[in-house]
Write a protein that binds this DNA or RNA. Structure first.
Lengths: 204, 204
DNA sequence: AGAATTTAATGCGAAACGGTACAAAATATG
DNA sequence: CATATTTTGTACCGTTTCGCATTAAATTCT
């Protein structure tokens, strides 16, 4: 599949690594304020190479969002390992989120989607679509775990898995915003703990 | 105080109304993607007039954020009218928020602060400061009402007013993000209802 | 009435922007 | 070795950007 040698001059860069660098630029500056010069400098790619490999700025941004979404889903499903108690699952979700959100040079970057895609979502329909789909996929994944919790008796039969999942997500959304607003790690961890308590209050 | 006639040529525009129009531009496009031409067209002010009245684009944006924050606090304190039950208070907070968030021409605009200031917060320290202060002020106002609820017996003595307030805010943050992501009013109202239930679960 | 002061309108200018044309370089194929 | 194909690097194009310089207009003060 991959062994077929391509005809022309081979690429002198790793597309995956370049996308990672581009993602960091978008993460810090947002889509609109990220210039092609910024992206070119961060990736060590000339603008034409960037364009040739990933299309225009919007294409590159959407690719970046999609990758980020997928990576986030991977972290989420790992955190929700059903062999662990529900409480631990939700705590791990928040811990995983904070590990991502609290990683900035000047200030914490929060969530790429919530922090930067939200700004573009009103005018750019494609961005709004990715953002909406990402939030829904997260909700759905947590909801599956909540349903399992009800089946297992970790949560009472009266619990509403869909709504509990959305509220569990809500705490994460808030962590994303607050991280970007400059809240301390301690504050965020306290909110995460309280969130676990509130959502899983009736769980053992 | 205001009757003193100023010396030169009088202004031909209402600064308050102009700020409102500028706010709408920022709300739809975010700070970086809002050009002075956009702002000039929306306010019916020439760029030099805009500049003379409000300073540069960042000054205008920060003014806009500050006004929005103040307006939001007014809505909040009104919603938290202590003569009403806690449940009604929180429900009114969310209803007030949704009335603001779900008012867009192309798509819902969500919260100006969460939707647009978050994007700039990493690089612009002043924006981050306003955003952080706004979130904190909201938390504090709700916390006051929570403390009162504990004193009155609406909440059990074991309740933690600070954390309950932050979680009540968290639901609102999530509503802001989801509105901008395109979620329907029905979905958002359902989340708000569940949020009230979860936060005020032990209240009468 | 005339000077002083403030705002309005036109338009400029330097810089940054996104995107691309074009030629040189590097590889596979015949 | 020659040709086809793809990537790289430089340089550039037209547009948009923000901010301001300058002049005309409107009002108050003397």
């Amino acid at each position: 599949m991959k062994g077929e040698k391509k005809r022309g001059r081979p690429r002198a860069f790793d597309a995956k690594a370049a996308l990672g660098k581009a993602r960091d630029v978008f993460w810090d500056r947002g889509f609109a304020a990220a210039s092609l010069d910024n992206l070119s400098a961060a990736t060590n790619l000339n603008r034409p190479s960037l364009y040739g490999a990933f299309g225009d700025k919007e294409d590159l941004y959407l690719d970046t969002l999609e990758r980020y979404r997928q990576d986030g889903m991977d972290v989420l499903t790992e955190a929700l390992d059903p062999s662990l108690p529900l409480r631990d699952n939700i705590a791990r979700v928040y811990a995983g989120a904070l590990a991502i959100y609290l990683h900035g040079e000047t200030a914490a970057r929060g969530c790429l989607l919530i922090g930067t895609a939200s700004a573009e979502a009103v005018q750019h329909e494609r961005v709004r679509e990715v953002l909406g789909r990402s939030l829904n996929d997260f909700d759905d994944e947590i909801e599956k775990r909540m349903r399992l919790a009800v089946e297992r008796g970790e949560l009472p039969r009266s619990a509403d898995p869909e709504m509990l999942a959305r509220l569990a997500s809500a705490v994460m959304h808030s962590l994303a915003v607050r991280a970007r607003a400059g809240d301390s790690r301690e504050t965020l961890e306290a909110i995460a703990r309280s969130g676990v308590e509130l959502i899983c209050g009736s769980a053992p």
